[in-house]
Design a protein around this nucleic acid. Sequence first.
RNA 1: GUGGGCGUAGCUCAGGUGGUUAGAGCGUCAGGUUGUGGCCCUGAAGGCCGGGGGUUCAAGUCCCCUCGCUCACCCCA
Length: 425
Amino acid sequence: MPQFATSPGMRDILPPESARWRQFVATFASLVTDAGYGQVIPPLLEDIGVFSRLGEATDVVTKEMYDFTDKGGRHVALRPEQTASVCRAFVEHRPALPFKAWYAGSNFRYEKPQRGRYRQFDQVGVEVLGSDDAHVDVEVIALAWDFFASLGLQRVELVINSLGEPADRATYTSSVDQYLRSRFDELTAESRLTLERNPLRVLDSKRPPDADVIAGAPNIADYWSPEARTHFERVCDGLTTLHIPFVIDSRLVRGLDYYRRTTFEFRGGTLDSAQNALGGGGRYDGLVEDLGGPATPGVGFALGLDRTLLACDDEGVFGAQAHEPFAFVIDTTDGTHAMAITTALRRFGVPADRAFDGRSMKSQMKVADRSGAALAIIIGSDEAERSQALLRDLRSGGEQVVVSLSDVVATVATRFESQMNTGAQ
RNA sequence: GUGGGCGUAGCUCAGGUGGUUAGAGCGUCAGGUUGUGGCCCUGAAGGCCGGGGGUUCAAGUCCCCUCGCUCACCCCA
């Protein structure tokens, strides 16, 4: 047993999974960059005040934060999410409006680990600050939707709702509170506790005994102000125009307190998983102001890398791909030729690899085969004496030709290019 | 944080009612005529049986504690 292992909820991402992560972020980056979003890379650590606005009644803030006092006496925290950081950065630097930002990176939450739920977890997301046009909501949702599609996911469900204007949300919250108290005895013990802290969250309970009570709860739609209703309808119309299917769930109450008006969530195809929320987001028109900036509307979403990848596994799409070298150099002399040739090939942009430790011909051939290389460049003592090398095709029949050592790099580079051109790779 | 399940080689797992040098497959490494991979064959390396305590003549097997993983609740991505 190793003396050290990763801390709970933290893990190593190794090949080939790590390549999949990289490709995941690359796919996302290219999609949102093309849509006019610029990357923001906020620090991992912020003043704790940046995050306390996320909600007094949320576990994320009250008990899951990795916070501590640094050597300078500052009370800081590892970011539990990035929306607040992006807003803080906006307030600090005041970029031009609308500010369209995307991000990717790790967040930290001290939770009990589970599948699809880690203490260090990665998200990708976008935020748009400075416009409350419902079409921004639509754009943001459409980007997430298209991203899932570009991964190959087919069974993602979009659920949306509107929490109304702050005032709507407040009156709605108090009538839900009133209603739940009237049926207090029928609620599960857990829900009774939740009710004390955040009545809306009771609506999210997945415990069967609560279902009945929740079904009879007041509907947010009845509390929308005309403005909120109009805004929401414009969002729905936009999605319809773009042929993005959605389900309106009046009980969709997202976890963070800052949401106003539009909220949405993406759910994966596996219904049996408690972690089927791939990502979500919404409007947070008050956040920037809370962080000391001017009143600035904002919308955005964040997607969980792990959960989305889990959904990909379920649907059998976006699998990990190994990156294979084009050429593998086998040198049974002292390895100097292998050293020189792999380096030269790499400088020409040809992926190349070799074996070390002076292994036998057979052994090096095995390694070459396993590497997935298309071509073996073989230099044994005979070839070395004649200043030659053998080029052996590893993919098909194994045809072998003799090349002069001085021509090896150019010959292989040419082969590589013609293969790239035919798209065989 | 609460509750259930699990924890044996790098990986996936066997190891009835406790009994002598803990096994398999895959993987790794080395061989299988003269320097050439994939298939096949042979061999080797590799385990404080998660950790600690206890019961017993004897524990991978039983009991307690602890750590970790996992599932559900919770929370949320």
